[in-house]
């Protein structure tokens, strides 16, 4: 099914962001317009310091763009929104809270009663494969497990759109591969619209329904790839390798 027949979940319209650094205006994001489809796994790929986090923070309402509009289901919104959840790159768990405490944090803030929020949290703790670790504290967990908690916490807010900012960037190569498989499984079990930011080409081709390739700073949409390979994808498959080569030839990933 061609993508343009799908329902647009999130629309970004001419988003630009700049900062004043040492009395100079520095553009971080320049005129980015993206349509994100419902329940799509969208990957945003770009070199380091190109403005990926800035763009994601704008979508999540953590910062305000100097220009541009955001729409969910065709309705304009500003700032942060309950329908958007976020998974962060690192240090994002509260060290004084257990796995359960971290995952139920959102529902708790929302005033959900204890029994209900425990049930919600348990569901997503199970989903990310952390059953049995509810009472563990973050410093007792490995990097991969911490990210699983981060994912469960984002899900527990029942968002419609999940933003993930290089969630596996801090993990070792082995764990990263496992987590890439896991996030795919989780998404297939609990479909949400995911916007996944990475600077890793293989990760992008492995995970994305589409890849939005960004240019060097300031971030601009350089190219959009549609990847129609069946999941789970085989990274040794000739078609996979072909797409991967095509993307990398077009990318300025000077890391």
């Amino acid at each position: 099914m061609p993508m343009d027949k799908k329902k647009v979940k999130l629309r970004l319209e001419n988003i630009s962001q700049s900062y004043v650094v040492n009395n100079e205006v520095r553009d971080a994001v320049s005129n980015v317009s993206i349509d994100v489809y419902d329940n799509e796994f969208l990957v945003i790929l770009g070199p380091g310091h190109c403005g990926k986090s800035v763009l994601l923070n704008i979508i999540g309402g953590l910062e305000k763009p100097v220009e541009g509009n955001k729409y969910i289901d065709g309705v304009k919104f500003t700032g942060s929104d309950k329908r958007i959840g976020m998974v962060f790159q690192r240090l994002a768990l509260m060290p004084w809270k257990t796995v359960m405490g971290n995952v139920e944090f959102g529902p708790r803030l929302a005033g959900v009663d204890k029994a209900t929020r425990r049930k919600i949290a348990q569901k997503y703790i199970d989903l990310v494969g952390l059953k049995g670790f509810e009472k563990a504290y973050p410093h007792q967990l490995s990097g991969g497990m911490k990210q699983r908690v981060g994912i469960a916490r984002a899900y527990a807010n029942s968002p419609e759109i999940l933003l993930m900012d290089e969630p596996f960037g801090q993990l070792d190569a082995q764990t990263r591969i496992v987590m890439e498989e896991e996030i795919q499984r989780i998404w297939q079990q609990e479909k949400r619209t995911i916007i996944f930011v990475t600077n890793n080409i293989e990760e992008a081709v492995y995970l994305g329904d589409r890849i939005i390739l960004l240019s060097k700073c300031p971030a601009r949409v350089k190219q959009i790839y549609e990847i129609n390979l069946p999941r789970p994808r085989n990274t040794m498959d000739p078609e996979f390798l072909r797409i991967r080569r095509e993307v990398s030839e077009n990318t300025d990933l000077a890391l």
């Binding site: 959840g85 962060f88 994002a92 944090f105």
Partner: peptide
Amino acid sequence: SEVLINVAKTCGASNFTIFRK
């Protein structure tokens, strides 16, 4: 941590709630 503040913000917490929690 800035990230923890952002976590709470994305959960819709007010500044005073973030201060407390």
